[in-house]
Simulated assay, not measured.
Amino acid sequence: MELSIARQFKNKVQNVINHRLLKQGKVLDIRYWPNSPLIEIDLHLPGAAMHQWSEVPAIKFNVGEWYFRDYTPFGWDAETSTCSLLIDAAHNGPGSCWAKSLTIGQTVQYLKTESTHQTPHGTHLVVALGDNTSLAHLLALRQMTLPAIRFTCAVLTDSAATGQLLKSYFPWSPALHLNEDALVNWLLTEQYCTDHTSFYLTGNKALVVRLRKVLKSLGHFNIKIKGFWG
Rank of each mutant, 00 (worst) to 15 (best):
R7Q: 13
K10R: 14
N11S: 01
K12G: 09
N15T: 15
I17M: 14
Q24T: 15
V27I: 15
Y32N: 13
W33Y: 12
L38I: 15
P46W: 05
E55G: 02
K60H: 12
F61S: 01
V63G: 02
F68A: 00
D70H: 09
Y71H: 07
T72E: 03
F74I: 03
G75Y: 08
W76I: 10
D77M: 09
A78N: 07
C83I: 12
S84R: 15
A90L: 10
S96I: 03
W98S: 06
S101W: 03
T103L: 12
Y110M: 03
K112E: 14
T113R: 00
T116K: 14
H117S: 08
Q118K: 07
H121E: 09
T123L: 09
N132D: 15
L135N: 04
A140H: 06
M144F: 09
A148I: 08
A148Q: 11
F151Q: 00
S159H: 08
Y169D: 12
P171L: 08
S173Y: 04
L176V: 12
L178T: 08
D181W: 00
A182R: 13
V184F: 03
N185Q: 14
L188T: 03
E190Q: 15
Q191Y: 06
D195R: 12
D195A: 15
H196K: 13
F199L: 08
L201I: 10
N204D: 14
L207H: 02
R210L: 09
R210C: 03
L215Y: 04
S217D: 09
F221N: 09
I225M: 02
W229N: 07
G230E: 11
